[in-house]
Design a protein around this nucleic acid. Structure first.
Lengths: 314, 314
DNA sequence: CGCAGCCATGCTTTTAAGGCATGATGGATT
DNA sequence: AATCCATCATGCCTTAAAAGCATGGCTGCG
């Protein structure tokens, strides 16, 4: 049995006349006649009562007519749904992110995305840097908004920078270095450093390397934290200073003091990471477009010093 | 799109491998490959991600896989339902009947039928004689259990006699004729007669004709009733006597007195009436078989005089 | 680096749907 | 009662498309 049989039968059941139904289907009447016969043979039940004045439906025919209509409708709707899904009009979008570096971008993007694609369920995954790259590789995540991953873990990934933030030294209130307006790399190298865990944040160490190696220095890592909130706490209680990006201040609030890191060319590069293979769904593509838009126009205003006096550094 | 495409796609989606799916479908792999491609082309969405290690489903593919399975299942179940309906395992059975003449047959048949075909909904239509024949003609009724219809209205109908009942004269308590043991046709002709309406009960007049015409007599019809209950009431209040069948007594109870109509060859012939055209459904056929069985064995006991002393006529 | 497994493509064969002409049927018409 | 007409079925042929076969290309694995 094929859908053709259902289409033909429903046409006949609606027209109650083979000739008219055939005309409506743009086929010859004998062809239609035969297909319906084949259908009845296959089911083994007479669906129609033929007469020289047309046809009538048997009780079985009435039942099958309804079933056939339902089936055809279901198929049609299934196709519509699949196409809508392909257009990114609904479905799920798995997004990984690093919370604090994306603070200026992601919330704005999410609310903008919800407006243009309300039926898409965005599933956010707050993960460490290396967990993000792993998720992108194994397909768990479609995209991640994060700090540019280090080269090793970035193999097979593509990264699109959205923003870059200069680095700041974070320290506890009343820390001696707070008296300085800016702090040099050399000075930081003498201080114990509160860092993130190498295991989960390999790209953080790439950045540290980029900061200290050019001066032939090595940071003194006092403690490795498993996340940003621990980092804040460790700095706050005086375990050492931290190296963070400008935007970090918004996450940490006023619990710490921040000073610009001088003579340093490294930045926190925040952007979109995606797998090179693994095609991008339309929903993800639309989300990326919004991210780009938000990064350049909208909230860039919000990060300028003039518009954020309260959290303005130094 | 045809069901073939759905079958093929689901096979691939289950096997996640064209080659294995093709083997399971007993077709060659390239044929399968092309059919699935055609499906994807028609929908305009990639459902599968091909790789040299097999295939994986895209998000759209997963959705369509579920939809396709549902569709195929629905079609299969639809066929099963239609076949079950054709076997008379469920559905509706429109049966017309004349209440009082069928009192010995129909209730027993209905309960027996309910046991063998519990899913068949028997719809009973209590109608006048001519309404029954009309219903059989226009297909509203599949069969009727009734008194044999007169020749005019029986055109195109077939009648199968189940029982025949001798005629009795019904009269009010204390009616002068009650003193007689039997009553002759000639005597009845002198009494005012309570009859049924000619409009609805033409076969009743055929019977009257059969009773009186051979003796060259005509009944004196005092009143025409629209149904049996009116008939009883009219007789009870003394408008006249009635001509009824033996079994009628069970319907009328003891409100009236009954005396055998002597020298009369007419009977109430009760049986199954069906349209000659208009094929009989299996459910109807099974019901007829039960009617025959009930008429000969089971309840025939109940009508013998010995077993019904309470309603045994004078 | 070659092998193995898998899917796609090109071409041919086979199946079946479609079309045309015609036959059969039965109610409606005169 | 005979005829007519609309309607559906049947036989034969054409056409479209599905299936098969052989082959090529890709990718991951040993």
């Amino acid at each position: 049995m094929e859908l053709r049989h259902l289409r033909y039968f429903t046409a006949v059941a609606e027209a109650l006349n083979f000739t008219k139904a055939a005309a409506r289907l743009n086929i010859a009447q004998p062809a239609l006649s035969r297909q319906v016969q084949d259908l009845e043979d296959e089911i083994g039940v007479d669906l129609l009562k033929r007469s020289p004045r047309g046809v009538t439906l048997t009780a079985e025919g009435k039942l099958f007519f309804q079933e056939a209509k339902d089936t055809l409708k279901h198929v049609e709707e299934a196709v519509m749904r699949v196409r809508a899904l392909a257009r990114g009009e609904f479905g799920e979008l798995q997004i990984g992110y690093a919370p604090s570096p994306t603070l200026e971008i992601l919330p704005a993007a999410l609310s903008a995305f919800r407006e243009i694609a309300p039926a898409v369920k965005v599933v956010l995954h707050d993960l460490a840097g290396d967990e993000l790259t792993a998720g992108l590789h194994d397909g768990t995540l479609e995209l991640a908004v994060m700090i540019q991953p280090s080269d090793e873990s970035a193999a097979g990934l593509e990264f699109e920078e959205l923003r870059r933030y200069p680095l700041y030294v974070a320290m506890a209130m009343g820390h001696p270095l707070a008296k300085l307006k800016t702090i040099t790399v050399e000075r930081v190298a003498t201080e114990p450093l509160v860092a993130l865990r190498r295991l989960d944040y390999s790209e953080y160490y790439r950045i540290l390397d980029g900061i200290f190696a050019p001066s032939g220095l090595r940071p003194r890592i006092a403690v490795e934290c498993d996340g940003v909130s621990s980092l804040i706490t460790e700095i706050e209680i005086g375990k050492g200073v931290g190296l963070v990006s400008e935007v970090f201040q918004r996450a940490a609030g006023k619990r710490l003091v921040y000073r610009r890191l001088a003579n340093c060319n490294e930045f926190h590069r925040v952007g979109i990471a995606r797998s090179k293979k693994g095609d991008v769904t339309p929903a993800a593509e639309r989300f990326c477009e919004i991210l780009r838009k938000v990064s350049t126009s909208g909230s860039s205003k919000a990060v300028t010093a003039k518009n954020r006096p309260s959290s303005k550094p130094g």
